[in-house]
Structures are given as structure tokens and as C-alpha cells.
Design a protein around this nucleic acid. Structure first.
Lengths: 234, 234
DNA sequence: ACCTGAACACCGTTCAAGT
DNA sequence: ACCTGAACACCGTTCAAGT
């Protein structure tokens, strides 16, 4: 029995390409976390043998570079399509909305910040993104020198993330409990005081876990306000 | 031939313990980077079989947790022994010197920031370190609420590091060359302008690579000045 | 109490070979 | 041009066993 192109059975198989491999890699990471992104697992997800991937991608390093490209491109599209305020009047709000837009993309790919930070080779997409950030600074009247400092100061915050050092641990058991709080009182008086007050102000916060979004914006505004002041004073 | 305790041959072997395993792990990472820190390699470094490590450490995760403890303890010792200015008069300089001291330790273990950031479980040493940071804020007159925001805003900066997104790539070939700069002019006009100016101001900077320490301090001061302002205005 | 040998499941990757 | 099978070196880890 011959299989014609129009054959309705499921045996059609569009050949792989780099693009499809990278998109699938993002899917795999979205679904099962970054540690589930192995060459073998990715291949299986694509209905192919692991070795086939090496035809489209040099090795795993290159795969991860490509994955970063996909994510940062998604950020650039999001940023391009929501057209914030004109940077010429109000660079600060223009920057702010851009960065918070970028952040919404990263919140859909929570594994991505870690991967982005580990790649030290600067990818084209990231360079393009920072070109846009720099454009806003320039249109807002920053000197190149100050804008340069600003890029360093912002760091990954410009892309919409900071790595939180204290993460809400997956299992709820490890939350700070009443007894543990009491135990802290002697050894860690200041942290004890702080967490007690936070727990009092917001009893729903399960003690000490915080609104990441609000904290991100607080830190971001601190930076942006600081940059504004430095700019005025020069 | 019997081997007495006083035997001068090299066959003495102090038994392992958790402490020695962790210290050796730091040594291995210092010497060959974090990717050289495998159970087998660490064991060899200690003159022992890989499986012996599991007697002293539950698994590799626990090993890395322990390694973070060692590093952060080293930070705490450094910070304790250099006794900065009294936080009651001048929390800002107290904080600044503490953080820059912490940074000197991390510069001796360049692989450590990455490991610290990946551990989401909050280790005792880190908690103790942040207790000290919080103490400075409190003695400087911060409310718990503002101090809490401040801890989030500082993030890993409080420990002395930020992950630079654009790293000076190991091989000098990849430096931004003249031709590459020219190529940028159309696609990346603002980055082109910025790098040109930086190259002009500091011809030794091999185009675009920057003084990490100066940039770290710039960002840190931005944060600290911003916190001071917010504090005054409340 | 402390260490080991053999073995397992799972990585990334090479290479020669298939269609 | 695109994909595969077999094989290799190297992971972390278990388990039963040695002293």
C-alpha cells in the first residue's frame, strides 16, 4: 500500500528544523522545568531519536543559547506591541512599562531567568533588547556615560527579573511556623521582629512570604528614581 | 610489617568528616570551576572512593548546600572582623563597607554566586547574614516595613554580588573589534555610540568591557541613596 | 563507625551507516 | 538532506558487603 501525500493517516512528518527544535525545547521546559530539558527527552517530545537533534543544533550549549533567543525574542515582541508612552517626554514611565511588560513574559517561563543568567555569551536578541533600553535613556536625555552606568546598575532587572534569594519553598511544610518564629526570637531578634510585624499586617502571607511583583516594582522604582536624581545633578 | 601510629610513611589517614568534605569541595571548585565539582572528582581529591562521600553527605544537593554554608560563613567572618563604622550614626556607610567586604570574599570564589542563587532553600548562614544586614537598617532608624522592602530591593547585592549579564568572554578573540563596531552602526546605533565613547574615554578597555567593581559600587550607591530618600520622606 | 566494589539509570556526544 | 543504532565516557546513586 502506497502512502500518498494526501494520506489521512497520522504518518505525515514535517522534517525538523532549528526553529521547531528550539520551540519544542521551550515547551518541554515550560512543562517539566529546566531539568527535564535533556536531549533524549526533547527528542522524544519531537518523536525522533536524540541523535537527530545534533543535525539542527551543534550541542546542548547551542540549544540553550537558542532557547534564550526564543525567550528574549518573545520579550521583544511583547515590548514592541504594547507601545508605551513616548520616551521623549517621560523616559521613566516609558522604561517602567517596558520592563514590566518584559517581566510578564518571564513569568510565563519561570525557568528562563536562570538560563539567561548562566549564558555569558551575549546573544543577538539580548543585545537588541538592550539597544532598545539604551534608546529610551538617550531620548530621555542621558549622556552615554550615565546610560552606561545605568545599564550595569539595572542588570537583569532591565529584562524584568531579579533572582529572589529566599524563595517560597515548594512544600508548604517548610513555611515559617509559629514555633519556629518563637525559636528565632533570641538568635535572630531583628528578623523575628520584622516577620512578626509583617505577619500582623498581612495574616494571609503565611508568615514572611511576599508579593514578588510588588517587591520587584519597589526595587525598580528605587533604581529609576535614583537614576533620575543622578541625571539631574550632573 | 606492622604500621604503628608513629609510622613516618605517608599512610596516615585521618578519617573524613562533613567539615573536611565541604572544605575540599570548595577547594575543588576554586581550582577547577564549579563544573569540576563532581562526586567522583571530589572523592579523588580526598584520596577516597566516590561512595565514601555519601557517608558524610546525603547527596549532591546537600553537598552544595554545605558548600554555600562554608562560603557564607567565610563572608560572615570577614564582615565580623573588620568592624565598620557604628551603624547608629551613618547606617549607609556601615552598610556599604559591610557589603563591599562581603564582595571581596566572593571575588575569591567566583563560582559561588551562581551556586548561592540556585539554592532556594534558605541556609542558616545566609539567614544569619541577613539578620546582620537588617540590624544595620534598624539601628539606622528604618521601620520594619521599609527594611523589609530594602532587603528585597538589595537582594543578592547585600551579599556582594550581582550577576553581570554581559561577561567578558574568556577568549580574547570575541572582544568587540573595530570591524564589528562599524557593523553595529546601522543596526545598533545607540550601543554603537555608547561603546565608541567609552572606547574613546578609555582606550585600554578593549572596547566595552568595564570595571565590574566600579559598576557594582555605582548600583549599590544608587540603591542606598534611594533608600535614604524613601526613609526621609516617610 | 567508616569505607568500598559492583551495578544501575541516565546524561551528552561521536561516528559510521542508513534512506 | 535528514535521520538512526550502537557505542563511549561520565554522571549521581543504591545496596550489600567489607574492616
Amino acid at each position: 500500500m502506497m502512502t500518498t501525500p494526501a494520506d489521512a493517516t497520522t504518518e505525515q512528518r514535517t522534517p525538523l528544523n532549528r526553529e521547531r527544535v528550539l520551540r519544542a525545547a521551550v515547551e518541554v521546559a515550560d512543562g517539566g522545568g529546566i531539568e527535564s530539558l535533556t536531549m533524549r527527552n526533547l527528542a522524544q517530545h519531537l518523536g525522533v531519536e536524540a541523535m537527530s537533534l545534533y543535525y539542527h543544533v551543534a550541542n546542548k550549549e547551542a540549544l540553550l543559547d537558542g532557547v534564550v533567543e526564543v525567550i528574549v525574542s518573545e520579550i521583544r515582541e511583547a515590548v514592541a506591541s504594547d507601545e508605551g508612552p513616548d520616551p521623549e517626554e517621560g523616559w521613566k514611565t516609558a522604561m517602567r512599562t517596558r520592563i514590566l511588560t518584559a517581566r510578564t513574559v518571564l513569568l510565563r517561563h519561570r525557568w528562563a531567568p536562570e538560563v539567561i543568567e548562566k549564558r555569558s555569551t551575549m546573544s543577538p536578541a539580548i543585545v537588541l533588547y538592550y539597544e532598545g533600553v539604551l534608546e529610551i535613556f538617550r531620548k530621555g536625555g542621558f549622556s552615554y556615560d550615565l546610560a552606561h552606568h545605568a545599564l550595569h546598575a539595572l542588570g537583569s532587572r532591565a529584562l524584568g527579573f531579579t533572582q529572589e534569594l529566599f524563595q517560597p519553598d515548594g512544600n508548604a511544610d517548610e513555611q515559617v511556623g509559629e514555633e519556629m518564629l518563637a525559636e528565632m526570637a533570641n538568635e535572630l531578634p531583628h528578623l523575628f521582629g520584622m516577620l512578626s510585624e509583617i505577619a500582623h499586617d498581612d495574616p494571609d502571607s503565611t508568615l514572611g512570604w511576599c508579593d514578588d511583583q510588588a517587591e520587584f516594582e519597589f526595587g525598580l522604582d528605587l533604581m529609576l528614581d535614583g537614576l533620575e536624581r543622578v541625571k539631574e545633578s550632573r
